[in-house]
Design a protein around this nucleic acid. Structure first.
Lengths: 213, 213
DNA sequence: CACAAGGCGTATGTATACAAAGCTGCCAGT
DNA sequence: ACTGGCAGCTTTGTATACATACGCCTTGTG
């Protein structure tokens, strides 16, 4: 693995997991020494982060971790609803029914994973990730898939702001199951509606449990 | 202006204007000598191009200019319809009516620009660009605006494939005027419909006049 | 004659040294 | 006391030298 990839992954995780707070300046020498690499690969990592919008160049004083405000979250979900709604509809038109039927069944049994505690809860997140992957593959549109991937980076960051209590996760699992069911049924409008519903509830939950820093 | 910015702009233009054909390998030393800069800023330029999808790293043999096939164009317009449709609707809800009313009037007089020949035709492209900019500003959503900006790079490349004859440009001006009018009227569904119509006609024109390389 | 293994060459990946540009703080003048 | 400018320092931007890895050609062997 290249040193620049390592630096990129490390910094990206640090930002997403809120170990690096918004406003933190990432000086090149400081970070390169911390990660044990040279400035050159670090600069490439910072470029990639800036291209993704996780950092911005603050002219002269290095790059800083971008802030993410409440308005940002509204904008983020507005775009997310547009992209994922379309993706769900396309998946319903073009996807393989059996794949999503299988995912629906697993999602219906997800509540047992959620209530089982932390290690099993990780399996639940993996299951949701598989649904995302399946939709990405089903839409047959690399540009749309790319746009959603770049969006998910920011969404993970937002999710860390909210309390992922068992109650909300159980409800979310049911909403995901509804999406999978609609896609398996080949009903584009239903799939889009189920996605819209899920995203609105997610947004409400984030805003309700948001803890101001 | 930084050397890396210069290199990025030069390579980006070369690719968009089809002076660098798909499949062309961009060796670092070769390009850095051609542009009169060192390898370091050139590498940053190539990174940015790759992040945008104009080039891809071909594992070991440098970065190559990405191809753009007919399926790509379909996918591109599918995403474009999703994003620009939503943007037009949001602009109708949130935009300033006077701004778009003004743009509509100018677009209605665009045919005279188009028929006047090449130098004036450049003014027409500028006018369409101003409409895009006005929509970007009106939606008040930086993530959506960013997604559309990254798409437009590829769209300019596609546009160069099609013959931009006066007939099509005149029709396109009328379609743009319809979009501006719907936004000025504050009618989201109409604005989205006008955008959908325009994009479908654009796509049809591109596919009809597409000259296989 | 064909296939495989090894060496050579050229490509990218990394480190470091140098240059230039911006911010910070101080000092002097009003 | 406040403001403007200057000097110093810290920062990023660039160039170049070195390391490394991959591909390709050559050569030897089955």
């Amino acid at each position: 693995m290249r040193a620049s990839d390592k630096a990129y992954a490390a910094l990206r995780d640090d930002i997403i997991e809120w170990r690096l707070a918004p406003g933190t300046v990432l000086a090149e020498v400081e970070q390169s020494e911390r990660l044990g690499i040279s400035r050159t690969p670090l600069r490439e990592a910072l470029s990639r982060l800036t291209a993704e919008g996780l950092t911005t160049t603050a002219g002269g004083r290095g790059v800083v971790v971008t802030d993410i405000s409440l308005e940002d979250i509204d904008e983020l979900f507005e775009l997310r609803e547009t992209l994922e709604g379309k993706a769900a509809a396309l998946a319903a038109e073009r996807g393989d029914a059996a794949t999503f039927e299988q995912l629906r069944n697993e999602l219906c049994q997800a509540p047992s994973l959620i209530s089982a505690g932390d290690p099993a809860r990780h399996d639940y997140y993996g299951l949701v990730g598989r649904l995302d992957t399946a939709i990405d593959a089903a839409i047959h549109n690399s540009y749309l898939a790319q746009a959603m991937r770049s969006l998910r980076v920011h969404l993970v960051r937002v999710r860390r702001l909210a309390a992922d209590d068992a109650e909300r996760l159980t409800a979310a699992a049911a909403e995901h199951a509804a999406i999978a069911e609609a896609i398996a049924a080949g009903n584009p409008r239903l799939a889009e509606a189920a996605t819209t519903l899920h995203l609105h509830r997610s947004l409400s939950h984030v805003k309700a449990t948001h803890t101001p820093q």
